[in-house]
Design a protein around this nucleic acid. Structure first.
Lengths: 227, 227
DNA sequence: CGCAGCATTGAGTCTCATCAAGCGGCGTGG
DNA sequence: CCACGCCGCTTGATGAGACTCAATGCTGCG
């Protein structure tokens, strides 16, 4: 962690809009702001490792944080990718008090850290924080269920198509946008090797998808939906 | 649902030991008991379907409940398997108020149902219930992370070996036990076709595993660990 | 301008799903 | 008591998909 500091005006702003704090009453927000510590992470910095005692709750303010598990042989499998506003480490709220996964900054990132003991203590007094935590967890659980089913049901091009569609407006109009992160990260998030993602993109060229660098053009969302 | 009823003595006993209620104070337990409804499910009965508005929280008392997602073509992918004491539908606590998955009794089962609105209402007053929910969710999240990573990192025989080892004492002694459910269920839980599970078992015969019906003998846990 | 890292492409291999057929136990009904 | 049929499991053959390894292209940055 390069710099540790109390949240400034900009960080407070971002935190207020985050998934966790946005639903809280003013007093709980104040209590959480009180214990928040802002940290600036260089790319590839590890936040915590699988198996370590969990002592902090994290919230991404900017950048992306990758959660993965390690094989005995050192291979990695991404299980989740958190962006601005997302809460990290909630899976460790109680579960044995150990982190179940490793967290690593995927790019230079700004995060807020909360001492877990003090969060628990505040949550035991203020139900709005407690329900906000439960809600964040339940949303994350739904997401992971979706990932798992997606993995088991769909091929690589289908998963990529679904990802692209999830970033489109539901109307059938053509769109173009920038991928929010590196392709290798996206590959990991989708459970693919980078090569497989590349091949999927090139296959999807026949279905109305153009990719140049991080720029994606989708000329025919309907065709994509049929893949 | 065949029979709906208030919990009797036996059901109360089981509920008290369940993951959710075991951590609560007496008053919260009483409040939850008050709204609990016991239901007896025949095998294959659907508890709820993906996309339906979520109005109930469920807790397995006996039997097993399978959670899965459906493909447009009708193929199914299991995402979780809940046994006695497990909480179902917590993923819908708030998340859009819709069930993210379909739940089906895998065998004749006894479950407790709680009206979700009333659970939320109790939770907003009693933090012990709220934190118990959050804890249940966080444990489930960890489990699903583990499944997802396991899927992506390990082959079918390795996943089966890990499953078997998780049912052994950590000491290296030989053990034998009964599978708690059908093999086809286990296959789904591990993300495998039933044929793949069968082949995995036959491959593991060379590594100290004997299977006859639901009976599993593990003669050499160490060898299994090396698979 | 050159380098380092990411991305693409190709070839080969492995794993697993799928389809199809055969086996075995178990319950029902004759 | 036996015959039949159902269901779950096993086994075999096949094919598609995706990972690995390796070589090359591209890009952005110093």
């Amino acid at each position: 962690m390069n710099r540790l500091m109390k949240p400034g005006a900009r960080e407070r702003e971002t935190l207020l809009n985050s998934g966790l704090l946005s639903a809280l009453g003013v007093e709980s927000v104040a209590a959480m702001m009180e214990i928040a510590v802002i940290g600036n992470l260089p790319a590839r910095q590890i936040l915590f490792r699988e198996g370590e005692p969990a002592d902090m709750l994290h919230c991404v303010l900017s950048g992306y944080v990758r959660l993965y598990k390690l094989d005995p042989d050192g291979r990695e499998a991404d299980v989740e990718l958190y962006g601005p506003g997302d809460l990290i480490g909630a899976s460790a709220l109680l579960d044995g008090s150990r982190y179940a996964v490793t967290a690593q900054a995927a790019e230079p990132s700004l995060i807020a850290r909360f001492d877990l003991k003090r969060v628990r203590e505040i949550a035991s007094r203020r139900t709005d924080l407690c329900t906000a935590l439960a809600n964040a967890l339940s949303a994350q659980l739904s997401r992971v269920f979706a990932s798992l089913a997606d993995d088991r049901l769909h091929t690589a091009p289908q998963r990529v198509a679904r990802y692209l569609l999830s970033h489109c407006a539901p109307d059938g109009r053509a769109v173009s946008f920038r991928l929010p992160y590196q392709k290798s990260l996206l590959a990991g998030k989708l459970g693919l090797a980078p090569e497989a993602l590349s091949r999927a993109f090139s296959l999807l060229r026949n279905h109305g998808v153009n990719v140049r660098g991080r720029l994606v053009q989708i000329t025919d969302p309907e065709a994509l939906r049929r893949v």
